[in-house]
């Protein structure tokens, strides 16, 4: 059992365990921090698969960017203190059975398929190849991704800056008239 196998199993347990904590934790801040460990473990997996640049990008973009964004989202969309940041889980048993069936079917397909495998070679530096691909074969997706990011920046700023109710009424949908839909069962929790 070499170092690769040991690293694989340790980080596989880390990834799956913290992903399970993320899904089943009732505190959303705990979920966000468990997601951080999952993302870092996936970055280690990329490094194990000789994808160094993707691993670094994963750490920079996911752990450094998206996770901070998610934590900001958690803080901006909850009232009160963090002890009260509880979220609701519905239909836990049927959805767990459904997700388990989907996962087992995926695993069965993965394991039973005869994949066309290449002989393993030692990894080389992927950065030069990625740069060349980015300016030759992937030129159009590269530019389109740049335009997409620009559009997303503008759209996100425009949407997030447009505030109508700076102090929203608590449990708004429970105050509706008798004709309106009544979803007031979970509004009083925060």
């Amino acid at each position: 059992m070499d170092l690769f196998a040991v690293a694989f199993y340790v980080f596989a347990i880390l990834i799956i365990g913290s992903a399970a904590i993320m899904v089943f934790s009732r505190n959303i801040v705990h979920s966000a921090f468990a997601l951080m460990f999952t993302l870092a473990g996936v970055a280690v997996f990329y490094a194990l698969l000789y994808a160094g640049f993707v691993a670094v990008t994963q750490l920079l973009v996911y752990v450094g960017g998206i996770l901070v964004l998610i934590l900001f989202g958690v803080m901006l969309t909850t009232r009160g203190y963090f002890e009260k940041v509880r979220t609701r889980t519905v239909n836990l048993v049927p959805s767990t059975i459904f997700a388990a069936i989907i996962g087992l079917m995926l695993i069965a397909v993965y394991v039973t398929t005869e994949w066309t495998l290449m002989p393993l070679e030692d990894g080389e530096v992927t950065l030069t190849g990625l740069g060349e691909l980015l300016l030759t074969d992937f030129m159009l997706p590269f530019q389109v991704a740049g335009v997409l990011l620009l559009l997303c920046i503008i759209g996100a700023v425009l949407m997030a800056a447009r505030t109508r109710h700076p102090h929203p009424p608590a449990g708004k949908s429970s105050q509706e008239g008798p004709g309106g839909p009544s979803y007031g069962e979970g509004t009083g929790r925060s």
Partner: peptide, 21 residues
């Protein structure tokens, strides 16, 4: 297999949790 387990956990989070985050 690790990726399949991650996928099903993500699917579980999408269909069973009620917070949009």
């Amino acid at each position: 297999v690790v990726s399949a387990v991650l996928f099903s956990l993500g699917l579980l989070a999408v269909i069973s949790r009620r917070n949009i985050i």
